[in-house]
Amino acid sequence: TTVHVNGVTYHFPNPEEAKKFVDRVVKEAGLTVEVKGNQWDVE
Rank of each mutant, 00 (worst) to 15 (best):
K36T: 14
D41L: 14
V3Y: 01
E43D: 11
V3I: 08
W40T: 10
V26F: 14
H4M: 14
T32W: 02
G7M: 01
D23I: 02
V8M: 07
V35T: 08
P13F: 05
G30R: 06
V33G: 08
T9D: 14
N14W: 01
V22F: 12
G37A: 05
E16S: 06
V35S: 07
K19A: 07
K20H: 07
H4R: 14
V25C: 15
E43R: 05
N38M: 06
V42L: 05
N14D: 09
K20M: 05
V3T: 00
V5H: 08
D41M: 08
K20Q: 09
A18V: 01
H11G: 01
K20T: 04
H4Y: 12
N14I: 02
D23E: 12
G37N: 11
T32L: 12
W40G: 11
A18H: 01
K36V: 13
K36W: 07
N14L: 02
Y10N: 03
T1C: 15
H11K: 04
V33D: 06
T2G: 00
E17Q: 05
H11S: 04
V8C: 15
G7W: 01
F12H: 00
P13I: 09
A18T: 01
V25M: 14
K19L: 09
G7H: 02
V22Q: 03
T1W: 14
F12M: 00
V25E: 03
H11C: 15
V35Q: 08
G37I: 13
V25A: 06
V22M: 11
F12Y: 01
L31R: 08
D41C: 15
P13M: 09
A29R: 11
V33P: 06
Q39H: 15
Y10T: 03
V42R: 05
R24F: 13
G37D: 13
F12R: 00
V8H: 10
T32I: 12
V5Y: 14
N38I: 05
E34C: 15
W40R: 09
F21Q: 00
P13S: 13
A29W: 08
P15R: 05
E34G: 08
D41K: 03
P15T: 09
V3W: 00
N6Y: 05
A29K: 11
T9Y: 12
F21E: 00
R24K: 13
A29H: 13
E43V: 15
H4W: 12
V8L: 06
N6A: 05
E28N: 10
K19C: 13
F12S: 00
L31W: 13
T32K: 10
V25G: 02
V26Q: 10
H11Y: 14
Y10I: 12
H11P: 03
Y10G: 03
V33C: 14
T1G: 02
G7Y: 01
H4G: 02
V3E: 00
Q39P: 07
T9W: 11
K27G: 08
D41H: 15
P15F: 14
V26E: 08
E16K: 04
N6W: 06
H11M: 04
L31S: 08
V8S: 03
V25K: 03
A29P: 08
E43N: 11
P15A: 14
K27H: 08
G7F: 01
N14S: 10
N6K: 04
R24Y: 11
T2I: 11
V3K: 00
N6H: 06
A18M: 03
R24I: 09
N14C: 11
G30E: 06
K36M: 11
V26I: 14
H11E: 06
F21L: 01
K27T: 07
K20L: 08
K19R: 10
N38R: 03
T9A: 13
K19V: 04
T1E: 02
V22E: 03
E34Y: 02
V35P: 05
V35N: 08
V25F: 14
E17W: 02
V5Q: 01
E43P: 07
P13N: 11
E43C: 15
H4P: 00
K19H: 09
D23L: 03
V42S: 11
R24A: 12
K36D: 12
Y10R: 04
F21T: 00
F21V: 01
K27F: 08
N38D: 13
T32E: 08
G37L: 13
N14H: 02
W40E: 10
K19D: 03
E28Y: 05
E34H: 14
N14T: 13
T1D: 02
H11Q: 04
T1H: 06
K36N: 13
T9N: 06
P15Y: 14
W40H: 11
V33I: 12
N14G: 05
V33S: 07
D41E: 14
E28S: 10
V42Y: 08
H11V: 07
F21W: 05
V22W: 13
Q39K: 09
K20W: 03
K36F: 10
V8N: 05
P13G: 06
E16D: 09
V5D: 00
V3H: 00
A18K: 02
T2L: 09
G30M: 08
W40K: 11
A18R: 01
K20D: 08
V26R: 13
T9G: 03
V5P: 00
V5S: 02
E17P: 00
T32C: 14
E16N: 04
K20I: 10
Y10K: 04
E34V: 15
E34N: 13
D23H: 02
F21D: 01
L31Y: 11
P13T: 12
E16W: 06
K27Y: 06
V25L: 15
N14F: 02
T32H: 11
N6T: 01
E17T: 04
N6I: 02
P15H: 10
Q39T: 06
T1R: 03
V35H: 08
W40F: 12
V5K: 01
T1N: 04
V35A: 09
V25W: 13
T9S: 10
V3C: 13
A29L: 15
T9P: 10
Y10P: 03
Y10E: 03
H11A: 03
E34R: 13
T9H: 13
V33F: 08
E43T: 13
N38S: 07
V22I: 14
T2E: 04
G30Y: 06
A18P: 00
F21I: 01
V22S: 03
E43S: 12
G30S: 07
F21M: 01
H11R: 02
N38H: 06
E17I: 03
H4I: 15
E16C: 09
V22Y: 14
P15M: 14
K27Q: 08
G37F: 10
K19W: 08
K20N: 10
K19F: 05
H4T: 15
N38T: 05
V8F: 07
E17M: 06
W40Y: 12
T2Q: 05
V26W: 08
V3R: 00
V42M: 06
T1A: 07
D23T: 03
Q39V: 12
E28A: 10
V33L: 09
V42K: 09
V22P: 00
P13A: 13
E28M: 10
K36H: 14
V5N: 01
D41Q: 12
A29S: 11
E17L: 06
L31K: 08
P13Q: 10
F21S: 00
F12K: 00
R24P: 01
L31V: 12
A29C: 15
K19S: 04
H11D: 04
E28P: 07
E17Y: 02
N6L: 07
K19T: 04
L31I: 11
G37W: 09
F12N: 00
V35L: 06
E16V: 06
E28G: 09
T1I: 15
E34I: 15
E43I: 15
E16I: 07
Q39S: 11
V5I: 14
A29N: 10
T1K: 03
H4V: 15
Q39N: 13
T2F: 12
F12D: 02
N38W: 03
E17D: 09
K19Q: 13
T2M: 07
A29V: 09
L31D: 06
V26G: 08
V42F: 06
V26N: 10
Y10S: 04
N6S: 04
T9C: 15
A29I: 11
A29Q: 11
N14R: 00
T1V: 15
V3M: 02
D23N: 03
N38L: 08
V22H: 05
Q39F: 13
K27I: 07
V42N: 11
V8Y: 07
V33H: 07
V25T: 04
G7C: 11
D23P: 00
V26M: 15
E34L: 07
V26D: 04
E34Q: 11
V5G: 00
A18D: 01
R24E: 10
N38Q: 05
V8T: 05
R24V: 06
Q39R: 12
D41N: 05
G30T: 07
E34S: 14
K27S: 07
T1P: 03
T1Q: 04
V26S: 12
L31N: 10
F12P: 02
H11F: 13
V26Y: 12
V8A: 05
V3P: 00
P15E: 15
P15Q: 11
V25I: 15
E16F: 05
N6E: 04
K36A: 13
K27M: 10
E34D: 11
G30A: 07
F12G: 00
K36Y: 04
R24S: 13
D41I: 15
G7K: 02
L31P: 06
V5A: 02
